[in-house]
Design a protein around this nucleic acid. Sequence first.
DNA 1: TTGAAAGCGCTAACAA
DNA 2: TTGTTAGCGCTTTCAA
Lengths: 330, 330
Amino acid sequence: MNKITIDDIARDLGISKTTVSRSISGKGRISRKTRRMVLDYIKEHDYTPNPIARGLAQSKTYNIGWVVPGDSENFSLPYFQLTMFGMCEAAQTENYDVLLIMSYDSDISRLENMLKNRKVDGVVLGRTWENDLNIKALKENGIPFVVIGGTNEPDVVQVDNDHISACSELTSIILMKGTDKLAFICGNSAQVVNQTRREGFVKGLEKCGKSAKDALFYVDCDSAAQIERATDEAIRTGAECIVCADDYIANSVLVKLSRDGKEIPKDIKIASFYNSALLEHNRPPVTSIQYDPRQLGFEAARTLIAMINGEQVQPKKLLGYEVVLKGSTL
Amino acid sequence: MNKITIDDIARDLGISKTTVSRSISGKGRISRKTRRMVLDYIKEHDYTPNPIARGLAQSKTYNIGWVVPGDSENFSLPYFQLTMFGMCEAAQTENYDVLLIMSYDSDISRLENMLKNRKVDGVVLGRTWENDLNIKALKENGIPFVVIGGTNEPDVVQVDNDHISACSELTSIILMKGTDKLAFICGNSAQVVNQTRREGFVKGLEKCGKSAKDALFYVDCDSAAQIERATDEAIRTGAECIVCADDYIANSVLVKLSRDGKEIPKDIKIASFYNSALLEHNRPPVTSIQYDPRQLGFEAARTLIAMINGEQVQPKKLLGYEVVLKGSTL
DNA sequence: TTGAAAGCGCTAACAA
DNA sequence: TTGTTAGCGCTTTCAA
C-alpha cells in the first residue's frame, strides 16, 4: 500500500514539508537542486499525493460531474456514452476524474445533492431542455458548468454540434436533387436539440425558396406508435421524403415502411439528422449527418476545466459535421 | 453558498463539535434531546457535511469506481450504460457516488492511477477477460471489488447473468423444435462472457443427446466481415439455425442474410444470446435471451458497498433471465 | 530559498 | 452523555 506521506519525505530528506509541497506543485521559489532531489525521491519511492487531503486544503475535488439522462431510450445511449468517453479523455489529461450524476427529466435532486456535497469542481450537462431546471440550479449555485446542446438561457457556456448548418445543408441538398414535398418527424420538442434541428430544416427549405408551409411537420413523436402514425400520414399526404430528427425516429420509420412493403427510395425517400452506427447496416444505407460525440464530450470537459482554472473561454463553440449521402435518397 | 461548518453549529448551540458530529452520524451515545436540537438546527440552516473533510478523517471517499471498456463497439454501449444506471441507483441509496474509470483492452493504467490516488473505496469491473489484468491489479492492491461477468480467478466476488442456464435452455429448446444442425458464432473468445455462452450452448446440445461435434463453431469473429464469412460458411455447411452470441453478431448476420435474399425462418433460422432493444424491431423478430443489465449493475454496486462496509457477501450471484421465442425460429 | 505554524472540516480516542 | 484533544495529509500565509 502507498502509505508514504509528505511528512515522511520531508523527514527522510531533512527538509520541511513546505519545501516538499512546493517541489511537487512547482509553485513558489525553489532551488533546482532541492526540487530535483524531492522529485527523484518521489519517483524512487513511488509516492502519490493524497488528492483528498489536497482537496481539503484547497477546497477542490479534482472531479467534474457529468449529468447524464437516466431515462433516455436505448437508441440515444451510445451517443451519450461516446460523449462520456470523450470527457474522460479530456479530464484525464488534466488529472481530473468524472463523477456520474443521473438526471431524470424534471427531477434534479441528484444534481442538487451533488452541488450541496461539493464533490465536484464543475459540471457538464449532457442534454438541454427548454427552461432547463438543471441550468437554473447550476447558475444559482455559481459552480462552473458547460452544457452540451443549445440553450437560450443567457450567459451559459455551450458546446454543440452545428445542427443548424448541418440540417439546413442536408435539407437543401435533398430539395435540390428534385425532391419536392418533405416531411419532418421529431421527438420531444421540449428538448432543445429537436427545436434546433427543426430550425435547420426550415432554413434549408428557405434556402431553396420554400417555407415551412411547404413541408409536413410531426413533432413530439415519442413512441414508436406515434412515429408510425406520422409516417402513415406523411405518405398519404404525398411526402416524397421523410426527414427524421434522429436515428431512433429513423429506425421506427424504416420498420414501419418495410412492414408496409414500401421500397426505399423508389416509393419514399428517407434521411436522418443523426447517424449512429446502429443504422449503418440498413439496406439501403440511410442518408444522414455524421457528428463526433466523442469530440463533443472532449471539448466540453476541456472547456469546463479551463473555466475551473479561471481561464476565459469561448461562450459558444460549434463543432463540425459531415453530410453523408446514401442510397435512401437516390 | 453553503459555507456553514460543524464548528459554527457547535458554537451557535453552545455544545462541542464532537456532539454535533455524533448527532449527525448517530454513532455513540447521545441524548434524544441534544440530537433533536442539532438535527433541527441542521434542517433549518440547510447544512450539509463536507464529504471531503469526512473522507480525510476516515480515509474514505464515498466513491466507487466503475471500470468501463472504452473500446467496445457501439452495440454493447447500451448494455454497459444500463448497468451503469443500475450502479448509480444502488450507490445513491447508500450515499455513494460513481466515478468513471475507462479501460482499454490491456491498458490498465487508468485503473492503476485511480488506485494510487485512492479516490475510490471500491471498484466494479464491467467486463472480464481471460487472465484479466484488471483483476490482478485489484487483488494486488487489496481494495474491495466485484466483477460483472465470470472469472476463474479464485476469491473474486462476482455478479453475473446466468449465461450457462440461459444459453443451454435456449439451445435445447431450438433443438427440441426439430432443428438439427446448429451453428454458433461469437466474438473475441478472450472475453469470459463469450466462453460462458459457448459453454451453455454445448450444454444445451448435450441435454438433447448431441455433442459439440454436431455443431459448427465460429469464434473470434470480431469484424462484420468475419461474421459474414462465418454466416456464409455455416449456410454452405448445412446449418439450419445460426445461434449468435450477442446482438452485434446477430445484427451483422441479419444484414448479410437480407443482402443474400435469404428468408428467415424459411431458409435459415436465427437466435441471439443477448437481446438488446436495438434488435427488437427486426422483421421477423429474433428469438433471444432477455437479461436485465440495470439490475446487474444494481446488484454489483450493492454488493460492493456491503463489502466496503465489512459485511460478508455471497461470492457468486447469478441473476435471472427470460428466453423469448419469436418468429426467427418458428 | 526555506521553514514554522496555522488551517481545511471532520472523526475518534480518551477523559470527564 | 458530553467535551478535549489529536489527528487525517496537504496547502499557504508569514517570517526568517
